[in-house]
């Protein structure tokens, strides 16, 4: 009877492998070629691209900038999403309305919403600075100073993807069994202790999955950077994925951008594996 198990796994696995195998092998091969705007094709350039990559400080600083951006926005999304999920979990008027409302930003197309956000941050014509002036916080150089530009990119990411965390955590909350809560109540636990001893451990497994997926997605950030700042001012908001885009499709250095991507892929797989192991160890293991 267990032989049938392959009927389940293999169709998907084979389909995915078939679609992805050629692009992956091809990209590895391209990364050893000198394919650029003038010399298309799979010439053999040895490890030249990889040597160049290790000396490319712009790439490495873009990569560390990306880590900062991805980790911080994902954590903020997680905390906010968790808070929102807890708040509309129960005992709130019109909670079904708020639940739908909170989901909506995730439904929008990033490449289009970035343009809308750019008009919002526009320091001459946009609505944000007049609004901040009105509530005495004061307008800011949103897209023209390094720190604020970085913040602007973060704000858009948080706006768009907090709903992702919110949805997963809310669904998790709604499926929590009620017995532990009764037990906690009998023990006389307050809301804070109940949260840390019952609610949070109950959501640990979901949290790990959600954080991982968001880290993967957040690291690919491209449209928002492109539209809001094109990596500027200077290099203040240039992320690794944006840099790969510039090298690959703007400069058309196909070979070099393939090398950048393969390196990125390896780094990400290693980093995510470590992060996942750590999260499982600290969040999930403690609970069971």
């Amino acid at each position: 009877m267990y032989r049938q198990k392959y009927l389940f796994l293999l169709p998907g696995l084979i389909a995915l492998t078939a679609i992805i195998l050629f692009p992956l092998i091809f990209t590895i091969r391209v990364s050893f070629s000198g394919w650029d705007v003038y010399n298309p094709g799979l010439s053999w350039a040895g490890v030249k691209n990889y040597v160049r990559l290790f000396e490319d400080t712009r790439y490495w600083s873009a990569l560390s900038r990306l880590s900062l951006l991805a980790i911080s926005t994902v954590l903020i999304q997680y905390v906010l999403g968790f808070a929102l999920a807890l708040m509309v979990w129960k005992d709130v008027h019109a909670r079904r309305f708020f639940r739908v409302l909170f989901l909506v930003p995730m439904m929008t197309t990033p490449v289009i919403m970035s343009v809308i956000w750019r008009t919002i941050f526009h320091e001459s014509l946009g609505p944000l600075n007049p609004l901040l002036d009105a509530i005495v916080l004061g307008g800011q150089p949103w897209l023209s100073s390094p720190g604020w530009a970085f913040a602007a990119v973060m704000i858009v990411e948080i706006w768009q993807w907090t709903p992702f965390m919110f949805l997963l955590l809310l669904a998790g909350l709604l499926s929590l069994p009620s017995e532990p809560y009764l037990a906690a109540k009998i023990d006389g636990a307050g809301p804070v202790r109940t949260f840390f001893s019952v609610t949070f451990p109950g959501l640990a497994a979901i949290s790990v999955g959600a954080l991982l997926i968001r880290l993967i997605e957040a690291s690919k950030i491209l449209d928002t950077v492109y539209v809001l700042t094109s990596g500027g001012p200077g290099e203040a908001t240039e992320t690794a994925s944006y840099y790969i885009y510039i090298r690959g499709l703007r400069d058309f250095q196909i070979g070099y951008s393939a090398a950048l991507s393969i390196t990125y892929l390896v780094i990400m797989i290693v980093a995510l594996t470590i992060i996942a192991k750590l999260m499982v160890r600290f969040l999930v293991k403690g609970q069971s």
């Binding site: 320091e123 001459s124 150089p141 949103w142 897209l143 023209s144 530009a149 500027g232 001012p233």
Partner: peptide, 9 residues
């Protein structure tokens, strides 16, 4: 310095 707010982007 002589550009409008946001003029450097």
């Amino acid at each position: 310095d002589s550009m409008p707010p946001g003029g450097t982007n």
